[in-house]
């Protein structure tokens, strides 16, 4: 086996000694004890496995470990802390997308919710104040089988408005 792969997960430098073609999802879940990204399809069709790599939302089920060597991976487990660190917020604060999901009670089973939160957070971090049409476009392709889309949409709209205020 080649030498261990180094990457940063939620601000912590880690090194993992598994095959380079291992999908990032299994490294995060089984070797690095992350619970946010979940297996939904293994085909990049649903988004349940979404994580951020250098701030971009990606599907970790089809991303080989080799593609994230040396990069910064943020998972739902570390999203709030990374937001606090980046935006100098009070310790313990949640990302505005997370707060808005709680405010609007935007979950049924919650299995998919990682994909929505991580994708919306990556999008709104770059585009606070996005409109409903833009949000629908940005989140299109993510699956929610329980049918939580109405409250998810309300939550992301609220987060978008709150983040626009925060950057104004």
């Amino acid at each position: 086996m080649a030498k261990p792969t180094r990457l940063t997960v939620n601000g912590k430098k880690v090194s993992v000694d598994v095959a380079l073609d291992t999908p990032l999802l299994y490294v995060l879940r089984n070797d690095l004890d992350q619970h946010g990204p979940r297996f939904g399809c293994g085909l990049a069709q649903c988004g349940a496995c979404t994580v951020q790599v250098n701030g971009e939302a990606i599907r970790s089920c089809v991303t080989p470990l080799s593609a994230v060597a040396g990069k910064h991976v943020t998972t739902l487990d570390g999203l709030a802390d990374s937001y606090v660190e980046r935006r100098k917020k009070v310790a313990g604060s949640l990302h505005p997308v997370q707060s808005a999901f709680i405010e609007h009670q935007a979950a049924q089973c919650g299995y998919c919710i990682n994909g929505w939160v991580m994708t919306a957070a990556a999008y709104l971090d770059k585009k606070p104040g996005a409109t409903e049409a833009e949000i629908r476009g940005a989140l299109s392709g993510l699956k929610c089988r329980c049918g939580t889309q109405m409250s998810i949409l309300r939550a992301v709209k609220l987060a978008s408005a709150n983040m626009a205020k925060d950057t104004a």
Binding site: R29, Q34, H35, G36, R38, F39, T75, L76, D77, L79, A80, L94, Q98, F101, I102, Q105, A106, A107, G110, Y111, I113, N114, V117
Partner: peptide
Amino acid sequence: LPREDVAQKVTAKYPYMVD
């Protein structure tokens, strides 16, 4: 009353079978 599981779910703290 708000569901307690929602906050856990959006912060990756709700324990699922897969965990």
